[in-house]
Design a protein around this nucleic acid. Structure first.
Length: 257
DNA sequence: ATGGTTGACGATCAA
């Protein structure tokens, strides 16, 4: 397998973060960058800016909220923006094929709080994604599901599990929904390697959370069993979070050979 | 005690 570097990054508005994304791409040159929360309609997607530095772009956006995109050095095929078993006006899904690898970029619903309709929407949405992946994995044994999952898989992915106990992003039912996806035969690539304690990918803008490393690891790259032997490294790059006007999320990258 | 931050948008809503 050719060397491959694949990144996920929730950039919380592509219009605001475009210069940072371009700078990051120039320095790190991943083969694929999956973006979430682009918050830009398709007509206004800045594809020329990416073309200039050698990236093709595919995107599924909407006004104000959500929106996903995939940037890639190589052409991608078989693009999908919706699942056949999930009708959803919210633009949260982008699937594509790179060579013999299938990619699914997800912006999983946040869920609001546990009593809200947003929470049941989140749980149902994850169930539909799981059903879709179960079928799709048969066709594409080399599969990468990546994005902002809005779920911290385990307590080790939370700076203070007691504060977050049964809170949104950490609750039992959503963790179970993620586990159901993993049980199809996916692996959290970050945990295939030794990592520092207290490694996170998201820090609230409030209360100096980043400075105090009060974060959660909710941005994930899941890989199917057939890709495990190819996966050599997985890292979260905290540098962009230190910049002025940062996204509240850091980019996460997995490396393959 | 309150509000604590950011973004889209143009009053609040979402995260």
């Amino acid at each position: 397998m050719k060397q491959l570097k694949i990144t996920t990054w929730n950039i919380n508005s592509l219009r605001v973060r475009l210069p940072q994304v371009l700078d990051w791409l120039k320095v790190h040159q991943p083969d694929v960058l999956a973006l979430q929360e682009t918050k830009v309609v398709n007509d206004k997607f800045p594809q020329e800016a990416f073309a200039k530095i050698g990236y093709h772009a595919w995107y599924s956006g909407q006004k104000t909220y959500n929106g996903v995109a995939i940037l890639s050095r190589e052409e991608l095929q078989n693009i999908i923006t919706d699942l056949p078993n999930l009708e959803d006006p919210q633009r949260r899904i982008l699937g594509a094929t790179l060579g013999d690898i299938r990619l699914l970029n997800l912006y999983v619903p946040n869920g609001g709080d546990l009593e809200s309709e947003k929470y049941s929407y989140k749980l149902n949405w994850l169930e539909r994604v799981k059903d879709y992946l179960q079928k799709s994995l048969v066709k594409y044994p080399r599969f990468i599901v990546l994005g902002d999952f809005n779920i911290a898989p385990e307590d080790q992915d939370v700076y203070d599990p007691e504060i977050w106990y049964e809170n949104i992003l950490c609750s039992t039912r959503e963790r179970k929904a993620l586990k159901n996806i993993l049980n199809l035969g996916f692996y959290d690539s970050f945990r295939l390697f030794d990592q520092e304690q207290m490694s996170f990918s998201w820090w609230n803008y409030r209360q100096g959370a980043f400075r105090r490393n009060h974060g959660l690891r909710i941005d994930l790259i899941l890989i199917s069993k057939d890709l495990i032997s190819n996966c050599k490294k997985a890292v979260i790059d905290k540098e962009p979070r230190r910049l002025k006007q940062p996204s509240d999320h850091a980019p996460m990258t997995s490396f393959f050979t």
